[in-house]
Amino acid sequence: MTRTNRIGYLGAYPIPQVTRGINSAYLAAKAANPDVEFDIIWLNEWFNPDKEAQVAHQLLDRGCDILMQHTVSTAAVELAQEKGIYSFGQSSDMSKYGPHAVLTSMINNWGPYYTRRISEFLNGTWKSEDTLGGLGQEIIALGGLLPTIPNRVHLQAQDVISRIASGQQHPFVGPVRRQGGKGWLALGELASDSDLLTMNYYVDGIKSVFPAAS
C-alpha cells in the first residue's frame, strides 16, 4: 500500500502501551515489505488536533505516504483523505473522516467489558481481577477494511486478524531483537505479558530514537 516505503507514526506518550503498538505494527509491516521504514514523532499528548495536524504535515513532507497514530483525534486521518494517501484510525472507527484513506481503525471496544463487570457487580459476583485483552477478548476491535484495497491484501489482512483473535498468531514471536541488536525473543518464543507491559524499547530495524527519560 505504500509507494515510498515510509510509514509516519504519531506517537502519543513513550510508554509501553504505545510502544508495543509501534513495534507490533513495524514487525507486521516489515514482514510484508522488508524495505519499510517507520518515521516516528512523539507528541506527548493524547489529543491535540492542531498539533497532530502539524505533525502529520511534517511526516508527509518527509516522504511518508501512510500515517499511523496512537493519538486520538481525526486530524491525521483527515489530512490523509485530503492528500490522497492512506491512514489508520485509532481508538475509534475513523473511516467517516477519511472514507478513501482509512485502511482500518483500531477500536477501543470496552463496552462489553464494562457490561460484564457491572453485571458482576450487580449480581454480587464481582471481584478484583487482572485484565489483559485484545482482539480475542473483544476488548479491541477493528473497523472495516477499506473496500478499495487489493483483494489479495484484503484476504491476507482478514487472515491475520482472525489468527490473532483466535490465538494462533502473536504479534511478538521470535526471533526478535531489540533496537541496537541486543537479543530479546529466541526463535519461536512469544513475548510474555510482562514483556508487553514493560516494553520501553523499539525492536531492531526501527531507526528512530526511543525517547528515554532525560
Binding site: 513513550p14 516516528i40 514523532i41 512523539w42 507528541l43 506527548n44 499528548e45 491535540n48 498539533k51 505533525v55 511534517q58 533496537q179 541496537g180 541488536g181 523499539y202 531492531d204 526501527i206 531507526k207 528512530s208 530514537v209 526511543f210 525517547p211 528515554a212
Partner: peptide
C-alpha cells in the same frame, strides 16, 4: 544518522533526538 522529534505538551518546540545508524541516541 537519524532524527526523531519529540514534542512536549507544554511547548511548541520539539526536542530533537539524534540517533546513530541503528537508532541509538
Amino acid at each position: 544518522f537519524n532524527l526523531t522529534e519529540q514534542l512536549m505538551a507544554d511547548s511548541d518546540l520539539p526536542v530533537l533526538l539524534i540517533g546513530d545508524e541503528e537508532g541509538l541516541e
